[in-house]
């Protein structure tokens, strides 16, 4: 185990209305086995001991599945390692003497609430507008009554793996939420259970996505590159298709 010394430049902003700025902190003896969030924990303990306010950041499961954590590290959402969330990024990806710039996920639809913590409720509202199969509890047919080709189930699972972290939005040059929205639409479009409502779902989820102020997709592929779950833009293609078909035939 080795340790490194770092200079951190972290976005500090007291609340949504305040102006923020990058503050510089020196942090020594960072073990390379630490996760990025554990490094921030150490910084916060140090700041607390110095009587300063710790850096606010969202985190919960710390095993890469809840989607709560995330920040832009040196310009890359969730940092330099591929297919990991910030909590699974380890300090061995950095070298002694590095300066690391840490900024919150930014998008018009993600207001910064404090420091690195942003409001991603817009993503919830996209799901609320139609990201489900409209069935009530009970009275459902037997699980095996509709056979689903294993390959479709796998593709649906690929899309369903989305953790809703918002890295796709943060990394998109235009702040678009297409990868997020398309993941849910794909999952349900690929399964027979989702077929009945697929047109209405595509129309309302896209309408909600636009209303929230997310940008336009320009097929820059950044979202796919930073997605911690490796969700493919093939899903975006599927969303485009679903939407086109729905818009031309619904009603």
């Amino acid at each position: 185990m080795s340790s490194i010394n770092l200079t951190l430049k972290i976005w500090r902003q007291h609340n949504s209305d305040a102006l923020g700025n990058l503050e510089t902190y020196d942090l020594d003896d960072v073990h390379t086995d630490m996760s990025f969030l554990e490094m921030l924990d150490i910084l916060n303990e140090k700041l607390t001991k110095e009587g300063k306010e710790p850096v606010a950041f969202d985190h919960d499961c710390r095993e890469g599945i809840c989607g709560m954590c995330g920040a832009v590290i040196d310009g890359i959402a969730h940092g330099p390692e591929k297919e990991v969330t910030l909590c699974q990024l380890h300090m061995r990806n950095f070298s002694n003497g590095d300066t690391i710039v840490i900024e919150p996920f930014r998008s018009r639809a993600f207001p910064v609430k404090k420091d690195l913590l942003v409001d991603r409720s817009a993503l919830d509202r996209i799901i609320q507008s139609g990201g489900y199969v409209s069935i009530n509890t009970g009275g459902t047919p037997d699980g095996n009554s509709l056979p689903i080709p294993s390959s479709n189930a796998e593709l649906a699972m690929d899309a369903a793996a989305c953790i809703g972290c918002g890295a796709c939005v943060a990394s998109c040059p235009n702040g678009a939420a297409m990868l997020f929205t398309s993941a849910k639409i794909s999952q349900l479009a690929l399964l027979p259970q989702g077929h009945a409502e697929k047109k209405q779902r595509a129309l309302s989820m896209v309408a909600q996505m636009d209303e929230e102020g997310f940008g336009n997709c320009t097929n820059a592929k950044e979202c796919e590159a930073v997605c911690p779950k490796g969700i493919s833009i093939r899903n975006i293609a599927r969303l485009n298709r679903e939407y086109l078909f729905a818009a031309l035939t619904e009603g």
Partner: peptide, 28 residues
């Protein structure tokens, strides 16, 4: 119009911007 809309979103977003996708010359 799209160029303008996207420019509005992307101006002064991050102090460091890194593109992960390679060969973006033609798309950018």
């Amino acid at each position: 119009f799209l160029f303008y809309q996207n420019w509005q979103v992307s101006k002064s977003r991050y102090s460091v911007t890194t593109r992960v996708v390679k060969n973006t010359f033609s798309s950018e």
